[in-house]
Simulated scan of single mutants.
Amino acid sequence: MGLRKKNKTPPVFSHEFIIQNHADIVSCVAMVFLLGLMFEVTAKIAVSFVTLQYNVTLPETGEKVDQFILYHYGFKDLATVFFYMLVAIILHAILQEYVLDKINRRMHFSKTKHSKFNESGQLSAFYLASFVWGAFILASENYASNPTHLWESYPHTLMPFQMKFFYIAQLAYWFHALPELYFQKTRKEDIPRQLVYTSLYVFHIAGAYLLNLNRFGLVLLVLHYFVELLFHVSRLLYFSNEKNERGFTLWAFLFVVARLLTLSLSVLTFGFGLAGAQNQSLDLTAGNFNILAVRISALAAICLTQAYMMWKFINFQLKRWKEHAQIQAVKKKATNTKSKAAKKGENKANGVNGTVSFEDRDSPRAKKVKSS
């Protein structure tokens, strides 16, 4: 596909060869699954990778006689997640090659800024797409209009197409972030941080999906993605002009609000909504996980994650304030130095500091008497 320009041709199957050509290699693998749809022998296997599985056709309630299709989850979803993980790797390479790399060449960033700019550029595109997509589902399915929709009629084993595809795409994207650590030559000091937040995303998204809390998970993801989108856009603007810091102030306020809303919705859902439901027995066949142990575990996991995020947020703010204080101290020192230098120059001009005094300037020098 020629997604990347190659200046040199490294040895085949070497690390450098795979990194330079990983988008082309992954594209060929994805093409194999698409070509498999064209032949009857392989179509049944290829369909499991390309299309959503476990659909159920139900009659439309009310006056309409049409039928509509809903989905539940199963083991075949792993194959679908794998295929769309390949798609995410290809899209990542396209965005990197044709947008971010071109901007990087123009801006001449340092290595540290180059890495952070690429990260924010990729995540901004993902958060924007996910936020718009998630908000569209919330509006179309009317989940956000009433908080009781988050736990009403639990378990929510059946999902509309957009809901299931959204979760498949989310899992595929965050799984794709793991091989990208290798493909993008991520610095060793950045790997632990990226592994932590990628693991947290996979854990919470998969948890909401498998525990049939897809509505609740969707609301929290849309809320969280909006705040993260604001942060990474603010960081991109900051890299373009270091005077653009207003976005960070708005992000800091909304970050705290989002954490409070997340905790409030979690307590409301697990502590009141699901706790007051009639059916509170574990039933794996029906997909019902509404028991005390699961509710406490889910609520504890959310609370711990929010506490961890607030701890990172406070450290980030303290670091920013410390850097700002250091910059102000340097500016103040430079200003004082300039004022002292100006004062010193003024004094020199006025004959102070042991240079030419007023008396020395006006009195003529004593002439030497010549000896006869």
Rank of each mutant, 00 (worst) to 15 (best):
M1R: 06
L3E: 09
L3D: 08
K5E: 04
T9L: 10
T9Y: 07
F17V: 10
N21E: 09
H22K: 00
A23M: 06
I25R: 03
M31S: 08
F33D: 01
M38V: 10
F39R: 08
F39G: 01
E40W: 05
F49R: 05
V50D: 05
Q53F: 06
T57P: 06
L58M: 12
V65R: 15
L70I: 01
L78T: 12
L78Y: 09
V81E: 00
Y84H: 07
A88M: 07
L91N: 02
L91F: 14
E97Q: 13
E97S: 12
F109N: 03
T112W: 00
H114N: 11
S115M: 14
K116C: 05
L123F: 02
A125C: 14
A129P: 06
F131G: 12
A135S: 14
F136G: 01
F136M: 10
I137W: 03
A144V: 15
W151A: 15
E152T: 07
S153A: 07
Y154N: 03
H156T: 13
M163Y: 11
I168V: 09
A169P: 07
Y173H: 13
A177C: 12
L178M: 13
Q184T: 08
T186M: 12
D190M: 00
Q194C: 14
V196P: 00
Y197T: 07
S199Y: 05
S199M: 01
I205L: 15
A206K: 00
A208D: 07
V219D: 01
L220P: 04
L229W: 04
F231S: 09
V233D: 01
E242A: 00
E245I: 04
E245V: 05
R246V: 00
T249F: 03
A252I: 00
F253C: 06
S264W: 09
L265E: 03
L265C: 03
F270E: 06
G271P: 15
A277Q: 11
L282Q: 05
D283A: 12
T285S: 10
V294C: 01
L304G: 04
T305Y: 10
Q306F: 14
W311S: 04
K312L: 10
F316G: 08
Q317K: 04
H324S: 03
A325E: 08
I327A: 08
T335C: 00
T337C: 08
K340V: 14
A341C: 06
K344Y: 11
G345H: 06
A349S: 02
G351F: 15
V352Q: 15
D362F: 15
